[in-house]
């Protein structure tokens, strides 16, 4: 069983259709969730749904306060809330099932974050945003000088650090989610292989695979939540480093 990607080429650019479908669905789910939570918005006693989104907002605000000492920036707050919801939904999308179809075994449904393209794009966006915020807060000169701190000799290491943070930020998320999906795929393939050798062997192997599968799915949910939290926390920490640069 070897899964491929459903790729198409438009305007000379390659698009992975499964990622486009799943990430669009994840974004739409986040928007629908936010809409459902803010439908009856009130400053008095909030309803259940509004309470849920307010809990998420306060959770992200706590991360902001811990890592950069302030929480009044609405754009960063929106970025954090959007990231944590989007990543959590994207991480758990591949847990209940996967959808493989076509003669070339193309994977149409999986977690979009189980693909390095998605996570690396998000990581690059986050790091570019931290650089942008440094230039906006402290000016271009301070930005270039910051690569020579604390000594001029560390210039190469500072450059390397930026690439490393981007790479680890993206690949940590990708690796965790991808490994979870590979494990689920192996368990599902074990049950399928059993059915190929006979109906009774199939039922037996399915029953054997069912309990580890359930345990692993619960673990995948946990990993999905933890990784979303880690990604947002690191995003805030990197911004915090840039924001508090001048004071140190």
């Amino acid at each position: 069983m070897h899964a491929t990607r459903p790729l198409v080429q438009i305007f000379g650019l390659t698009f992975d259709l499964s990622i486009i479908i799943t990430s669009t669905i994840a974004a739409l789910v986040v928007l629908v969730f936010a809409y459902a939570c803010t439908r009856h918005i009130t400053a008095k006693k909030p309803g259940k749904m509004q309470n849920l989104l307010e809990w998420v907002i306060e959770f992200v605000q706590n991360i902001m306060v811990n890592s950069m000492g302030r929480k009044d920036n609405l754009f960063i707050l929106a970025g954090g809330v959007g990231l944590i919801l989007y990543l959590f939904i994207a991480n758990i999308m591949g847990v209940p099932f996967s959808f493989i179809a076509g003669a070339d075994h193309a994977t149409w449904w999986k977690s979009p974050t189980a693909d390095a393209h998605v996570t690396m794009t998000l990581a690059i966006m986050m790091i570019v945003y931290t650089h942008f915020i440094h230039i906006r807060l402290h000016g271009l000169k301070n930005y270039f000088l910051s690569f020579f701190k604390p000594f001029k000799a560390l210039f190469a290491i500072n450059i390397l650090e930026q690439f490393c943070t981007t790479l680890t930020l993206g690949l940590r998320l990708f690796g965790n989610i991808y490994a979870g999906e590979v494990m689920l795929g192996i368990l599902a393939a074990a049950a399928m292989k059993g059915f190929q050798s006979g109906i009774f062997i199939g039922i037996g192997s399915s029953m054997l695979a069912a309990i580890p599968m359930m345990i692993w799915q619960v673990f995948c949910l946990f990993i999905g939540a933890i990784q979303a939290y880690i990604f947002v926390t690191l995003f805030m920490v990197y911004i915090g480093q840039r924001v508090n640069e001048a004071t140190t």
Binding site: D16, G82, Y86
Partner: peptide, 20 residues
């Protein structure tokens, strides 16, 4: 595949913008 990355960047930016 660059197209996937560009699409991802666009949809995530749109998501954050609408959310905000």
């Amino acid at each position: 595949s660059l197209g996937t990355m560009i699409f991802q960047a666009v949809i995530f930016t749109a998501l954050i913008w609408i959310l905000k």
